[in-house]
Design a protein around this nucleic acid. Structure first.
Length: 565
RNA sequence: GCCCCGAUAGUUCAGUGGAUAGAACGAGCGCCUCCUAAGCGCUAGACAUAGGUUCGAUUCCUAUUCGGGGCGCCA
C-alpha cells in the first residue's frame, strides 16, 4: 500500500461512503501543519455538512496507526502527520531496492511502442528548433522505457521529393559534396529552381524516374541523403539521441498496399480525379468539417505521387507491425496534415498514430530563419558550451587528465541544452536565450549535475561501509531531511503522470526541485560530520537515494551525472 | 477570412478548481580556516483584458487583444 492509499484508507474508516475520487491528497502550506493534507469541500458537499464540521468529525474518529500518527482539523482541511521514521525508511528502501527501475510504474510491461521522431529533411546541420523534436522524442522513449514498454525508435528519412531532386542535380555539378556544403547547395538549388523553370523541371523528371524504379537515380538520391543523414546523426548522437530503425521514404513509393487505402477512399466516395487530372481526396466525405484543408492531393496530373501517398503507406506499415502504441512527435505545423492523414487512414480501418506536438523555438530577436542565417546550430551550441565547461573543469581539477576534462565538458554541454529545451512544456513557444543556456547557473541542467557531483563526492569520501538498506535506527530528525524524503517519495507519481500524458517537462522540473531540495539539505545537514554514526548512516542512505532518483530522472532527460565537476 | 496552440515578476520559465502563486536570471546586500562557491542566505517584483460557471477561478467556458502555427499539386 502506498502513501496515498493509506491516507484514503484513513478517511474511509470514518467515512465509508466516500469514493477514492473524492479524496484529494494535497500538500499543506507548511510542514508545521502536517505532512499530508486533504481538502474536504467535495466530501462535505456529499454529506451535506460544512467542510470544517466534517474536518472535526474526521479528526475525532481518527485512530492513529503505524504510518499516520495524528490528524488535525484546520478549517476545511484535515492535516495528517506521518510516522516520518517509518515512511522515510520505506521510501529509501524502495529507491535502493529498485535502483535504475525506481519510479517506473510498469504500466507498459509486455507492450510494444513504436515511436517516430526527428525525421528532419536531409538538407542541413540541425538547429535547436529541430533538436526540440529529437530531444522530446528521445526523452519520451526513455520515459516509456522506464514504464516498462518495449520501445522501438524509428526515423523517417525524407529521401524523396522535389528538393532532394534539385539537390541531386547540384550534387552532380560539385566534385565532392561534403556535409558542410549541403545547406549552401540546398539554398542555391531552390533559388535556381525559382529562376529557371527548366532546372525545376529536371528535378521533377528525376522524381518521375525514381518512381518508375530507375536504380541509378535511386542510388544518387540515396548517396545525397546518406551524406546528409550521416552528418545530422553525428550531431544528434552527441545529444545522446539514437534510433533503432531508419525507414526510407523511397521504400514506400509504388507500394501495392496503397491500393487498400485508395479503395477505401473510393468506397467512401472521397477519391476523385479533378478537372486538371489530379487525384484528389475530398475529406469532407470522411467527416472533415472545415472548408479550408478540405481537399488533399494524392497524385499530380502527370501521375507522380505526392508525399501523402508515401505517408499513408508508411503509417499502414507501422500499423501492421502491431505495436500497442504508435507514437510520433511532430511540429505544430503538421497538425492539420496529421489530422487529414488520420481521416484517410481511419476510412481504411487503420488506426492512426498518436501524435505529440511541439511548438517552435524562437530566438530573442524573433523566429529562426535558415535562409537568413538566423539559427543556433546544435553543433555550434555544443562546441561553445563544451569549451566553456572545459575551462571550468580544468581550473577546478587541474590534476585530472585532459580526456576527462573533455568528457565532463561534453556532458555539461549536452545537459545545458537538453535541460533548457525539455523543461518547457512542448506546446509553448520557447525563447531560446543563448547567454542563459551557456551560463550553467541557476535553473539549468549543470546545476542538477552539480548536486549529483556533490553527492558523489560525499560518498567517495565516506570511509565506512553504509548499510544497504535502512535499519530500525533510521531516524528522521529534521524537517530538511523529511522534505527531501517527501520529494523522493513523489517521484513515481511524477513519472506515472508524465508517461500517461506523454510529456517530459514535469520530469525536468521535478529533477530541478529535487536538486534544490537536496542542496538545502547539503547546507543544513552535515553528513560525514554528523553528531553520531547513526545519523551519518541515515544521511548517507538519503544521499544514495537522492542520487539514484536524480540519476533516473536525468536519464530520462538524456543527461549524464558526472563523478566530479 | 477561417481553424489550432499559447499569454504568470524587468527577462526566461514552473505551478494549481481551494490555505501565503514558486524558481532562476537581472538589481542590491552578505557568506569559502566548514562534505565542490557551477553553491547558499537576505531585500524588491507577476497570474493580458472583460464577462460567465462555481461555496471558491490564475486554473474551466466565452469574447477581445497580442504572439506562434496552419488552410488542394513542398515534405
Amino acid at each position: 500500500m502506498n502513501l496515498s492509499e493509506r491516507i484514503s484508507q484513513a478517511v474511509f474508516t470514518c467515512f465509508p461512503e466516500a469514493e477514492a475520487s473524492d479524496i484529494v491528497i494535497a500538500e499543506p502550506p507548511s510542514l508545521d501543519l502536517g505532512d499530508v493534507a486533504v481538502p474536504l469541500f467535495t466530501l462535505a458537499k456529499k454529506r451535506r455538512t460544512a467542510p470544517h464540521a466534517l474536518a472535526q468529525e474526521l479528526v475525532e474518529a481518527f485512530v492513529p496507526n503505524d504510518y499516520i500518527m495524528s490528524a488535525a482539523a484546520a478549517g476545511p482541511y484535515i492535516n495528517f502527520k506521518l510516522n516520518r521514521d517509518r515512511v522515510g525508511a520505506e521510501t529509501v528502501a524502495a529507491v535502493l531496492d529498485t535502483g535504475a527501475h525506481w519510479g517506473g510504474g510498469n504500466t507498459g510491461a509486455g507492450k510494444k511502442v513504436l515511436i517516430e521522431h526527428t525525421s528532419i529533411n536531409p538538407n542541413a546541420s540541425p538547429h535547436v528548433g529541430r533538436g526540440r523534436c529529437a530531444m522530446i522524442g528521445d526523452s519520451l522513449a526513455r520515459l516509456l522505457q522506464l514504464e516498462g514498454y518495449d520501445v522501438e525508435v524509428h526515423y523517417y528519412v525524407n529521401d524523396m521529393g522535389r528538393q532532394i531532386g534539385l539537390l541531386v542535380l547540384i550534387a552532380d555539378e560539385i566534385e565532392h559534396l561534403s556535409f558542410d556544403q549541403i545547406l549552401n547547395a540546398y539554398v542555391e538549388a531552390n533559388q535556381r529552381a525559382e529562376a529557371d523553370p527548366q532546372f525545376a523541371e529536371q528535378g521533377y523528371a528525376l522524381l518521375a524516374r525514381i518512381e518508375s524504379g530507375d536504380p541509378k537515380i535511386r542510388d544518387k538520391f540515396h548517396a545525397v541523403t546518406d551524406l546528409c543523414l550521416e552528418g545530422q546523426l553525428a550531431v544528434l548522437e552527441r545529444l545522446g539521441v539514437s534510433y533503432d530503425v531508419f525507414d526510407r521514404e523511397s521504400q514506400y513509393v509504388n507500394d501495392p498496399r496503397l491500393e487498400r487505402i485508395e479503395n477505401a477512399l473510393l468506397d467512401a466516395g472521397a477519391l476523385f480525379t479533378d478537372d486538371d487530372g489530379r487525384r484528389v481526396v475530398d475529406l469532407s466525405k470522411l467527416g472533415y468539417q472545415a472548408d479550408e484543408g478540405r481537399y488533399f492531393v494524392l497524385r499530380r496530373a502527370n501521375g507522380s505521387s505526392m508525399y501523402g501517398c508515401r505517408d499513408l503507406v508508411y503509417s499502414l506499415d507501422k500499423h501492421e507491425q502491431g505495436a500497442e502504441l504508435n507514437l510520433m512527435v511532430l511540429g505544430e505545423d503538421h497538425k492539420l496534415y496529421a489530422q487529414q492523414l488520420a481521416l484517410m487512414l481511419e476510412a481504411a480501418d487503420i488506426s492512426a498514430p498518436e501524435v505529440v506536438y511541439y511548438s517552435y523555438i524562437l530566438l530573442k530577436d524573433g523566429k529562426m530563419s535558415t535562409r537568413q542565417g538566423k539559427v543556433v546550430l546544435l553543433a555550434d551550441f555544443l562546441d561553445q558550451a563544451a569549451a566553456l565547461a572545459r575551462e571550468r573543469v580544468s581550473e577546478q581539477f587541474p590534476e585530472m587528465p585532459a580526456e576527462e576534462h573533455a568528457a565532463i565538458a561534453e556532458q555539461v554541454a549536452v545537459s545545458a541544452i537538453r535541460f533548457a529545451v525539455l523543461r518547457v512544456k512542448s506546446t509553448k513557444n520557447v525563447t531560446f536565450d543563448m547567454e542563459a543556456a551557456l551560463s550553467f547557473q541557476g535553473d539549468t541542467g549543470p546545476y542538477i549535475q552539480y548536486s549529483c557531483a556533490r553527492i558523489r563526492s560525499i560518498l567517495r569520501k565516506n570511509q565506512n561501509a553504509i548499510p544497504d538498506t535502512p535499519g530500525d535506527d533510521f531516524r528522521v530528525q529534521t524537517d530538511t531531511e523529511w522534505a527531501l524524503l517527501l520529494k523522493l517519495a513523489a517521484f513515481p507519481s511524477v513519472i506515472a503522470d508524465a508517461a500517461a500524458h506523454r510529456i517530459c517537462s514535469p520530469v525536468a522540473n521535478f529533477a530541478l526541485e529535487l536538486a534544490r531540495t537536496f542542496t538545502t539539505f547539503y547546507h543544513e545537514c552535515p553528513v560525514l560530520g554528523a553528531e553520531d554514526a547513526a545519523t551519518t548512516d541515515m544521511r548517507l542512505l538519503l544521499c544514495r537515494a537522492t542520487l539514484q532518483t536524480l540519476g533516473n530522472a536525468l536519464h530520462i532527460l538524456g543527461i549524464e551525472t558526472p563523478e566530479r565537476m
